[in-house]
C-alpha cells in the first residue's frame, strides 16, 4: 500500500494514467530539455560566457526583457481596465468583446505579426497618423512593445476577471455607507484584493512575452543592436549552424523562464495560502 505518498481511493486507473503522463512528459519535456543543458556542458565555460555576453547579445537581452516588461505593464493597466468594464458594466456587444479578448491566444503569431506590421508601418492605418506627429512604431523597439502587448493582453484580463467577479458588493456598499468616495473605495477596498491576480497576470504576460518570436519578427525589422530580440538571435545562430552558440543563449533564456515560473508558482502558493486563512 502506497501510504504516505498517495491517498487510498476506490477509483481505478491511477497507475496507468500517471504512468502514461510521466512517460509522455519524460520523452517530450525532460529529454529535450536535458539535451539543451548537456550540449551547453560540452561548450566549456569561457566559450559559453563570451557567447552570452557578446555586445549584440546583450543588446538583445535589453530589448527582449525591456520590451516584455513594458508590454506587461501596459497590459496590467489596460487589462485591469478591460476586466473592470467587462465585469461591472453592461453595454451592447459586451459578450462579443469578452470573447474577443482571447484572440491573441487563438490567433497564430505569424498572422498577428504581419497584421500588426501592416497597421503600424509608415503607410499603415495607424502608422501614417503617428508619422505625422513624428512617432515611428514599425521597425523600432516601440513596435516590439506593441506586438508584445497584443500577445499578453488576455493574461491579465483573464486572471483578474474571476477575482473581480468574486468581490463582495456588500463590502463596497459598507465602505460607501461609511462615507468613502467611489475612488477611495476602489483604491482601498477593491484594489488590494486584486493585487495577487494582477501580479500573477503580470508575471504570466511577462513570461509569455520574453520568449515571443512570431509576432515580433515582422514588426521589429530585426536590426542588430536595435530591434533584435534574443529568440531571433538564436534563430540566426541556428541558420549558421552555430548550435553551441544558439544553445548557450537558449540556456540563458530557459533560466529566465524557470525563474519566472518559480515566481508565478510562489505567488499562487502564497495567495492560495492567504485565501485559506481567510476561510474563503
Amino acid at each position: 500500500m502506497k501510504r504516505g505518498w498517495k491517498q487510498f481511493s476506490v477509483l481505478p486507473g491511477f497507475s496507468i494514467s500517471l504512468g502514461f503522463t510521466l512517460l509522455y512528459l519524460s520523452i517530450l519535456v525532460l529529454l529535450p530539455l536535458s539535451a539543451v543543458f548537456l550540449k551547453t556542458a560540452t561548450m566549456g565555460w569561457e566559450a559559453f560566457w563570451s557567447t552570452i555576453t557578446d555586445q549584440r547579445v546583450l543588446a538583445s537581452y535589453r530589448l527582449s526583457f525591456g520590451a516584455a516588461f513594458a508590454a506587461a505593464l501596459i497590459n496590467v493597466v489596460f487589462g485591469l481596465l478591460v476586466a473592470w468594464v467587462l465585469v461591472r458594466y453592461s453595454f451592447p456587444g459586451k459578450r462579443v468583446i469578452d470573447g474577443l479578448v482571447d484572440l491573441p491566444f487563438a490567433l497564430p503569431t505569424a498572422v498577428a505579426g504581419i497584421a500588426l506590421t501592416a497597421i503600424y508601418s509608415e503607410n499603415g492605418v495607424v502608422g501614417h497618423y503617428l508619422q505625422t506627429i513624428g512617432v515611428k512604431v514599425a521597425f523600432t523597439p516601440l513596435g516590439v512593445i506593441v506586438a508584445l502587448t497584443f500577445i499578453g493582453l488576455p493574461f491579465v484580463v483573464r486572471t483578474v476577471q474571476p477575482v473581480l467577479e468574486d468581490v463582495d458588493r456588500h463590502v463596497e456598499e459598507a465602505a460607501a455607507s461609511l462615507g468613502a468616495t467611489r475612488w477611495q473605495t476602489f483604491r482601498r477596498v477593491i484594489l488590494p484584493e486584486l493585487y495577487p491576480a494582477l501580479l500573477t497576470g503580470f508575471a504570466l504576460a511577462l513570461a509569455r512575452a520574453l520568449g515571443e518570436y512570431g509576432s515580433v519578427v515582422f514588426i521589429s525589422g530585426n536590426m542588430p543592436m536595435y530591434t533584435e530580440i534574443t529568440p531571433l538571435l538564436i534563430m540566426s545562430k541556428l541558420e549558421q549552424f552555430d548550435y553551441a552558440g544558439a544553445t548557450a543563449l537558449a540556456v540563458v533564456m530557459l533560466l529566465a523562464s524557470f525563474v519566472m515560473l518559480l515566481f508565478i508558482n510562489i505567488i499562487q502558493w502564497r495567495t492560495g495560502h492567504r485565501r485559506t486563512a481567510k476561510g474563503g
Binding site: L33, Y213, M253
Partner: peptide, 11 residues
C-alpha cells in the same frame, strides 16, 4: 508556456 517557441524547436 514558459519556454520560447524557438527554444522548443532548438531542443
Amino acid at each position: 508556456f514558459a519556454v520560447s517557441p524557438v527554444i522548443s524547436g532548438l531542443m
